[in-house]
Design a binder for these strands. Sequence first.
DNA 1: GTCTATATCCAGATAGAC
DNA 2: GTCTATCTGGATATAGAC
Lengths: 201, 201
Amino acid sequence: MARNRELNQKMRDERREQILSNALILFAAKGLSATKITDISAASGISQGLIYHYFQSKEEIFRELISSAFEKMNTACRELEKLPLPPREKIILAIEKLLEGFDVYENTSYYYLLILQATVSEAVPQEVKDIIRNQSDFPYEVMERILIEGQKEGSVRAYDARDLAVVFWTTIKGLGLNKAAHGERFKSPDPRILINIFLKE
Amino acid sequence: MARNRELNQKMRDERREQILSNALILFAAKGLSATKITDISAASGISQGLIYHYFQSKEEIFRELISSAFEKMNTACRELEKLPLPPREKIILAIEKLLEGFDVYENTSYYYLLILQATVSEAVPQEVKDIIRNQSDFPYEVMERILIEGQKEGSVRAYDARDLAVVFWTTIKGLGLNKAAHGERFKSPDPRILINIFLKE
DNA sequence: GTCTATATCCAGATAGAC
DNA sequence: GTCTATCTGGATATAGAC
């Protein structure tokens, strides 16, 4: 009996994941309001009504995706900061991994697009805005700290660290968007171009 | 009689402009599909039905805004390229003017957001997609040509010029988005950070 | 030119059969 | 768990009065 309940729960979770992953691509491409429940159900190969056995509303699906996007990003930042490496190496590693991510994991660029849509759009539920407000500064803070450390170390250029952190993330986000928008045609730029923005030669 | 017709036409055009400028802000913030005709009419202080005396549909408003956004951007690029300046100076000028634009003209960042929404979204009419496909490469091409000239001149770093052009525009677009998303809190970074990406010291 | 009222459509969510 | 049928609300666009 308990076995059965566990198995059911597992199947339920898997189905939820499947719906979420289809919804991610749709939300990223069309935004929250232009994505219909029928789009999501069709992409998942199930009837429209069945969606509501797994989620309470379209907004709930959106909210879960946004939460997990920030969770992934902020976890990665936390781990980067804790690595036992000098700031200079952290910056190089971050840029290389982020650029690599665009090519290797297809979902990555969709997440960038999703977060962007949600950050920018006024047409998202309040709870989602709250998640964004609470979580979106963290990557900037981490990068600013690393850059300041790097300036003490002497490896990072002597511009305002906050400015450098802003340039760091806007460039990464911009590239993620480019990839999402142009798909096949997109080619990551030479990482040395980006590394050179922050590090002295 | 002709006087009257001219005057009427002028008033009509002015009203259209006023509707367009309100719609720009709404579309940029919420996207095409989440922006309701009533949002636009309310922002313009007129009844919902009256919108249809000036435009055939919500999509037509969107299309006009996209057209004029690309027109402005591509005209600016064409003029930049024609300036009687060495490549090095063109790059510095472009970065300074683009960053300045964020602070001086409020509308600029909304246009970036609008173009981004339209480029990325599958939920836009076919005609809009066609405009985007035909117009969106031009700024990249211009910048690539300027960068190549600069490499011949010896002032521009020796990375792949296409990569540099991509980094140029993704960084600018990213900053435009930041400004649009964070409004008040946004502060343009030191232009020298960006100039240094492209030019040798 | 401008408004109010309304026809029409479409999407989110629910109910109930299997 | 899954589907089909349906309720309900809201948004586009039109019609018609002023």
